[in-house]
Amino acid sequence: MTRWLPRAWPLLPTLLVLAAVAAMIMLGVWQLKRAGQKEALIAEVRHNPALAPRSFPAVGPVTPEVTFRRSSLHCLRVVGWQVEAGRAADGSAGFRYIARCTTGAEGQGALVALGIGGRPDMKPGWAGGNIEGWISKEPDHRSLIQQLTGPEVVLRPMLVAAASPVAELKPTALPSPDDIPNNHRSYAVQWFLFAAVAFVIYVLALKRRETRAGADS
């Protein structure tokens, strides 16, 4: 058991390596916890699209009981657009146009995923109005490190329009629990592997240094 272990362990480098290994293990455990939470969320929202429509939430967070529920809102005025990659209901890829609306109600206004266009520089001729669709939440573009170390962010509700009122835009793919990413278990395995590899490499480096020191003496 101890033959492959070095006889001497330098204090400071060993502490640094062990701290890094512990951090990677903690990240792996956190990912496993997130996997369980995500699986519970998917199971809870799977039946939501078939339920009766409900009012559009004025503020976030978007809770599981309203996620993917049918809803509607009245966009008084479009104050801006957000464009990002998206997928249309027919399976084609394109650019998703998200309208930032004022609604006249208290809260953060409303986001509406209006449809999918073929290019990112369109100017949709939609100034507002009644729109029906499904409740989702705004995209989260933070990196994993930002999610871990940054402040908590409450994502705003977003309505995914069932039909686009703009002829140039295809309807967005309908929200589905199957589209909720749940790669946390694979991420956990990766962090555990990183921890094991880092420790093994450090041990091999110490053994190599120990062998060279023995040869020189």
Rank of each mutant, 00 (worst) to 15 (best):
G118K: 12
R34L: 14
W126V: 06
R3S: 13
R208L: 11
L204H: 06
N48S: 01
V153N: 02
L32G: 04
G104T: 08
F56C: 02
A89G: 02
K33W: 14
R185C: 00
T2F: 15
G86K: 10
P61Q: 12
P171I: 12
E132L: 04
P49V: 10
R119F: 09
D121C: 06
E106V: 13
N183D: 15
V197T: 13
A20F: 14
G214R: 15
Q82Y: 07
E168Y: 02
H47A: 14
V83Y: 03
V66M: 02
P165F: 11
D140C: 00
R3V: 13
S72L: 04
Y97Q: 03
L169D: 08
V45R: 00
A205W: 10
G129A: 11
G115W: 09
P139W: 13
I201Q: 04
K123E: 15
L111E: 10
A58G: 01
G133I: 08
T172E: 13
S143A: 07
Q82N: 10
Y202A: 01
D140L: 00
V200N: 00
P13I: 10
L206T: 03
I135W: 05
D121N: 13
V83D: 03
G36M: 07
D140W: 02
W134I: 01
N48F: 06
W9D: 01
E44G: 00
K38N: 05
W9E: 01
V29C: 04
Q31H: 13
A198D: 02
T67P: 00
P171V: 11
V83L: 02
E106A: 15
R142I: 10
R87K: 14
L169T: 11
V166N: 03
D178M: 11
H74I: 13
I131H: 03
E210L: 05
A198M: 14
F56H: 02
R100Q: 15
I116D: 03
E44I: 00
E152C: 01
W191H: 09
G133Q: 08
Q190Y: 13
G86Q: 08
A99M: 09
M1W: 11
S72K: 12
I42Q: 13
V197H: 02
L169W: 08
V197Y: 04
L111V: 03
A93C: 01
S164R: 07
L18A: 13
Q31C: 08
